Amino acid sequence: MDYAGAIERAAVAKRPLLAVCSELFLLGPTHGFAGWEEESFALFHEIADFFQVSVRAIHVCGSAKLGFSPTKKTQFTAGSSDLDVAVVDPQCFQRYVERIVHETNGYRDRSAFPRKDDGRSLYEDFKYYMAKGMLRPDLMPLIAERVEWARFFAGLSRKHSRRFKRISAAVYLSDSLFAMKQMSALQQYINEKEFL
Rank of each mutant, 00 (worst) to 15 (best):
P29C: 04
S81N: 09
I100Y: 09
N191H: 09
L186D: 13
S157E: 12
T71M: 10
M180Q: 12
F152P: 09
A64L: 00
L135Y: 02
Q75K: 14
E23I: 00
R151Q: 14
T74F: 13
S111K: 10
S161T: 12
R9E: 15
A131I: 00
H59E: 06
G35C: 05
K127M: 07
P90H: 12
A131P: 03
G5F: 03
E194M: 08
E8I: 00
A169M: 05
R151V: 09
S54R: 05
F178C: 06
S174R: 04
S80L: 00
G79R: 11
Y96K: 04
Y172E: 04
M180A: 12
P90M: 00
R115I: 06
Y123W: 12
V53L: 00
L43V: 08
L186M: 05
D89P: 04
A154D: 13
T71F: 10
V12I: 14
F44E: 14
D82K: 10
V53C: 04
E23S: 09
M140Y: 06
L142T: 08
D125R: 15
A170H: 05
I190F: 08
A144E: 13
S69V: 02
F126D: 02
F93R: 06
Q94L: 04
Q52L: 02
R15P: 02
L142C: 04
Y123S: 11
A34Y: 15
P90R: 13
K132R: 14
G32W: 13
Q188K: 13
H59C: 04
A11M: 02
P141S: 07
L135M: 08
R108N: 12
L83K: 09
I190T: 09
N191T: 07
A150N: 10
R146P: 10
H31N: 06
E148R: 14
F93D: 03
D125T: 14
D2V: 01
M134N: 06
F44M: 03
N191E: 14
S22W: 00
A154R: 13
A6V: 00
A78R: 15
F126H: 12
K72Y: 12
D49C: 07
A57W: 05
S81L: 01
A13Y: 03
S168Y: 13
P16H: 09
V20R: 01
R99A: 13
I100V: 14
D138V: 10
R151S: 15
V87L: 03
E98P: 01
F25D: 04
V97S: 02
I143L: 06
E23Q: 08
Y107A: 12
A48R: 10
D175C: 01
N105W: 11
F152Y: 11
K127N: 07
H45G: 04
D138L: 06
I47M: 11
F33M: 10
A154K: 14
L173F: 07
Q187C: 08
A131V: 00
F153E: 05
C21M: 04
K72R: 15
D2M: 02
W149L: 06
L24M: 09
Y128H: 15
M183Y: 07
H59G: 03
L135H: 05
A64E: 04
M134V: 13
K73W: 15
Y189T: 05
S22T: 11
H59V: 01
L43H: 12
L122H: 11
T74G: 01
S121N: 09
P141L: 00
R163F: 11
A78P: 11
